[in-house]
């Protein structure tokens, strides 16, 4: 009987520990019931939320928060939509008050068309948020030097985009992720661009600490099934990384013995 694999260490973000290494979003789902079912199917323990004006002219409707089981899932308010450090800091404080969570996904967008992060404003916002007691998870480009600078500013995790937000292209430059892993000691989480399960598995096989994704699940034809696929891929990729893969080689290496064939002369 095969022995069960030894338990993995938890994902540590600030003073919180998570067994799941898959962080999901709460946007773009067909409805809130599907979102909740997808979160359950993935057994995720952390989900991102956005901070926006309450529509005061609309009658009070169904609330996102009523569809997140806070006994199992922590909230990660983001600063999506912010384009300056000042806006991001303001939004982070609002998110903390509304979500009662010290975690923040710092996201400062530098270009509306590509949604690429603004590295200068992102870096500027990091230290003040850390000083204000936030556990800052930073959405960033995959530049290893920038990642090191962010970790130096007190980021609790560096979260490079694998490819542009919502593009589903997977990790386009795995070498930069590898370099980033060498340069920073805080968790590296691939955030954005993940399209399907194999993207998650390949990313995790690089040795990153986790994956954050939204569109790949929320906009799949069957979001609940895709959530499960992403969770399995996350675990599979993690196990493969911990197991130590064989080196790639040009020539074949037979798996069966070369001696003792019955038809041998």
């Amino acid at each position: 009987m095969p022995t069960p694999h030894p338990a993995d260490e938890p994902l540590v973000l600030g003073d919180r520990r998570f067994r799941s290494r898959l962080i999901l979003g709460t946007g773009k789902y067909p409805d809130l019931e599907t979102m909740r079912a997808a979160h359950e199917a993935a057994a995720t323990e952390l989900v991102t939320v956005a901070v926006r004006r309450i529509d005061l002219s609309a009658p009070p409707g169904r609330r996102l928060l009523d569809f997140v089981d806070r006994s199992k899932i922590a909230l990660l308010p983001n600063t999506a939509g912010c384009t300056t450090a000042e806006e991001a800091i303001r939004t982070a404080h609002l998110g903390r008050e509304a979500g009662l969570s010290d975690l923040v996904k710092l996201e400062v967008i530098g270009d509306e068309e590509t949604l690429l992060p603004d590295p200068v404003e992102t870096l500027k916002a990091c230290r003040p948020l850390v000083r204000d007691g936030f556990t800052v998870l930073v959405y960033t480009s995959d530049d290893p030097v920038l990642g090191r600078r962010l970790a130096g500013e007190g980021a609790a995790a560096v979260m490079p985009a694998g490819s542009p937000i919502g593009s589903g292209q997977g990790v386009l430059n795995p070498n930069n992720i590898r370099l980033l892993l060498e340069k920073v000691s805080v968790p590296v989480i691939v955030d954005a661009g993940v399209g399907t399960a194999s993207d998650v598995a390949s990313a995790m096989e690089l040795g990153i600490a986790g994956v954050l994704l939204n569109t790949g699940v929320a906009c799949a034809k069957d979001p609940v099934r895709m959530a499960r696929a992403m969770a399995l891929a996350c675990e599979a990729g993690r196990l493969a990384f911990l197991s130590g893969r064989i080196p790639k080689r040009l020539h074949a290496s037979a798996s069966s013995p070369s001696e003792g064939l019955a038809t041998a002369r």
Binding site: I54, G95, L212, L213
Partner: peptide, 24 residues
């Protein structure tokens, strides 16, 4: 929230009320 009972509103104040919505 604890300070809303002692905050007085004056002409020109910009008040924002936000909540958490779906996002990535």
């Amino acid at each position: 929230r604890s300070e809303a009972r002692s905050r007085l509103l004056r002409a020109g104040d910009q008040v924002e009320v936000v909540t958490l919505v779906g996002g990535g």
